[in-house]
Amino acid sequence: MDLSVSIAGIKFKNPVTVASGTFGHAEDFYDDKELRRLGALIPKTVTLFPRQGNPPPRIVETPAGMINAIGIENPGVDIFITDKLPLLKAIGIPVIVSVSGANYEEFRILVEKVNAAGVTAVELNLSCPNLGKHSLVAQDPAAVERVVRLAKKHSRIPVCAKLSPNVTDIAQIAAAAEQGGADALSLVNTFQAMVIDVEKRRSKLGNFTGGLSGPAIRPIAVFMVHQVYRRIKIPIIAMGGIMAPDDALQYIIAGATMAAVGTANFIDPGTPLAVLRGVEDYLKRHGMQRISELRGSLQS
């Protein structure tokens, strides 16, 4: 059975990966030989300079999900490359590094540094403020196209744009990223959300608002992947509340090339491998030889 998928000519041995920000530091929980079975790893977003992150409380539990406002706490791209990346690369599967710049210049430098560090691909986390006319890059098609084009110009490795679901028409943003030359899209990031402590009449998050993830968002994210798949030609790495094989299968049937397990890693770190086994079983059960037979096979 052939589970392999390819993005911009790069082959991944299967479609299951882990979403950015849900995996960092947990490496020591796994045996390398288990991790090695995944299609790729996407570590937590890095920025040009170290970021200390948001004040606590940073997370809150919600019905079938969670809201986080971590604030992209990370040691900065240079320390990431010297201290963390070698360990991730040693696992022996493709590493897609997620980066977020505060302006175009930062995106350019990040893309160049990540290229020089020798990774498989770079993911642009576009859910950052300050670049577009709207509040997030990912909400402004022109800004998305421009930042992707800039990244492509400075990158030898594939560039993937991670989109925010907090938009009116995600297919329009996806088309802008494709227009800018993106090799792939990651969707979706978290949904802006909050929980209010009624006794204190305050937000339950130190940062006031945060991003909702988990099974609560899955049906919306599946629909967005479906919408985007019909509009564009580049591969999609889908994520949003994948807890079990069926969830990943929904995304693949909707058109995703890869499926990333995110929040579920916090609940059951065995989820990515369970999802992989389940996808394999599904193909067997349905007499399919290749994962590509399943991709975008949604019947109308």
Partner: peptide, 14 residues
């Protein structure tokens, strides 16, 4: 503190 992963992955329990 409120904790999600417990493994140092999510950085939620800062």
């Amino acid at each position: 503190e409120v904790m999600a992963c417990g493994l140092g992955a999510c950085l939620g329990c800062a």
